[in-house]
Simulated assay, not measured.
Amino acid sequence: MTRTLYLFCSAAPPVFEVAGAIEAAQSRGWDVCLGLTPTAAQWLADSLDGLAALTGHPVRYAYGMPGQPEPWPRADVMLFAPATFNSLNEWALGLTAKFTVGALAQGLGCGVPTVVVPCFDDAYARHPAFGTSVATLRTAGATVLYGTEADPRPEPGAFPWAAALDAVEGAPWVPGRI
């Protein structure tokens, strides 16, 4: 059975490595669907067609029109990496103006296992909203890889794609939740 991973990315420098992350997920047997925040889509504008070809699915960064068919298969697991301070807080608050945040909110509400890897300056992590948002998301069932012994924070300049995919592999998935 094919497993479907929704990979959502915010506009942080590791988004430029997303093709390698997709290939790594595919090598583990995942069918990957890529969703980007609008700014991440702008950053990757020249690569969107290639990323769609790599995944075999349209890259999404905006909501579809009502009545349009769903272009992606149902998600088994979701990975939000890199997750910026802004997008993570929007998600925790249920502010779903962005397609990626709306899909994450819906998936979490439907019980889709979700892994989150924050990516921002440590000064943002000291802001009180961040701790509240992490607690909210963890209470809702998300696995937030930050501030625990499972925290994959790498050496400066490296993003923990492999650790994120390991966490996805360990998620208790049930086929086709959303």
Rank of each mutant, 00 (worst) to 15 (best):
V77L: 04
C119Y: 07
W173F: 10
Y61V: 02
F120E: 10
V168M: 08
P160V: 01
P71N: 07
G29N: 09
V32N: 04
L88M: 15
F159N: 04
A45P: 07
R74L: 15
G67L: 08
A52T: 00
V59Y: 05
S87K: 05
G147K: 09
G20Q: 08
V117Y: 02
I22S: 06
A105R: 01
V101I: 15
S10A: 12
W91H: 09
M65W: 14
M65E: 14
P66H: 11
T139L: 10
Q68R: 12
A125F: 04
L145S: 01
A25F: 07
C9N: 07
P73G: 07
G170F: 03
C9Y: 01
A97H: 14
G102Q: 07
V59N: 00
A125K: 06
A45S: 14
A75I: 07
A53C: 04
F120P: 05
E169I: 02
F16S: 08
A123P: 06
R60P: 03
L51Q: 09
G35A: 14
F85S: 00
L36V: 03
V18L: 12
L79A: 03
S47G: 00
D46S: 14
A40S: 13
R153Q: 15
D151M: 12
T4K: 02
D166L: 08
L44T: 07
D151F: 07
T114D: 05
A162N: 10
L7R: 03
V116N: 02
A21Q: 04
R138V: 11
I22K: 00
F85I: 04
A21Y: 05
R153Y: 10
L44Q: 02
P154F: 02
G131C: 07
F8W: 01
R138P: 00
Y146A: 10
S27T: 15
T37L: 06
L93Q: 08
L36R: 03
L79R: 03
W30L: 11
L5D: 05
Q26D: 06
V15C: 13
V168W: 00
L54K: 05
A129I: 02
A162D: 15
A25Y: 03
K98M: 10
E90Y: 09
V144P: 01
P82N: 00
T143S: 05
D121V: 11
K98Q: 14
M1S: 13
